[in-house]
Nucleic acid binder design. Structure first.
Ligand SMILES: [Zn+2]
Ligand SMILES: [Zn+2]
Ligand SMILES: [Zn+2]
Ligand SMILES: [Zn+2]
Lengths: 138, 138
DNA sequence: TATAATATCTCTAGCGACTAGAGGTTCAAG
DNA sequence: CTTGAACCTCTAGTCGCTAGAGATATTATA
């Protein structure tokens, strides 16, 4: 049994974040000492690790909630888990595509002015004012 | 002189967003009719177009504020504008790198299970529980 | 001109996923 | 038993909007 501070250190998740997860029901309410302080077991650490990892991979709290549900019922079909992972993968890929398009435009805009002119003649400013100067959608 | 609804249609920016921009000082307060409704000119449309385009390229509202400042002083050096654009470009590139790393892991995790097993044996769930199974940092 | 339909007004609250701070209590070391 | 670090709850703030309530203004038609 260890404190929230210990858990925080072990899992590398900030204390307020742990309390937040509990408050929204992502973590089960921790046991408490007589003085009302939270106490955790290795299981809690594992749970938090799962959450942390999934968050780092970009899953929403809602998705993680479903994943944990599944984990708690080892006999259920894992169909939903793979669905969620694939959805997440698609979302990441879409985001990458969009950012790449932004990157192109920003690179073009950035190199269009060396920064030693007056703002009236600045290509950066006119490019921002004028989407027609862009090559792609974004 | 046209209404906020017209402006919204022309600029393809939602009405509450226009009011929001005004409320945070990104758009100058619009002129008003006797009955207190906002009225805009072509200049307002241009301004909003600038903001919209910059937002689409990922600039923060704060950065856009600085860019507009610059635009309003055509004689000033445009150094800050290029700086902001380059910073933004770097941020986008960093984000892309991070997302690519996520993509790799997610692709691996996704293909690890076809979704027709029970959750106990699901590779998706165990991979999420275990960062050690990952190849890269993220 | 009267009425009705549509548009606009302000204000407040909500989203997601935290983060920070105030003000008070409990724990553990010495 | 004292001290100081760690913990507690609660509220509010972050960013960039978005949605809704309830009131008022404008516009089009009869
Ligand atoms: Zn320039
Ligand atoms: Zn553009
Ligand atoms: Zn599976
Ligand atoms: Zn990992």
């Amino acid at each position: 049994m260890f404190s929230i501070g210990e858990l925080s250190k072990q899992a590398k998740v900030k204390i307020p974040t742990i309390r937040y997860y509990e408050s929204i029901g992502l973590l089960a309410p921790a046991e408490r000492t007589e003085g009302n302080q939270r106490r955790y077991t290795a299981e809690g650490l594992e749970r938090l690790g799962f959450i942390k990892h999934a968050r780092e991979l970009g899953f929403s709290v809602e998705s993680i909630s479903s994943l944990i549900e599944l984990q708690e019922h080892p006999d259920r079909s894992c169909y939903e888990a793979t669905e969620l992972a694939e959805t997440q993968l698609r979302a990441v890929r879409a985001k990458i595509r969009q950012l790449r398009s932004l990157e192109q435009e920003l690179a073009r805009i950035s190199t269009g002015c060396s920064g030693d002119d007056v703002s009236e003649n600045c290509y950066v400013l006119s490019a921002l004012a004028n989407h027609n100067l862009c090559n792609k959608d974004h």
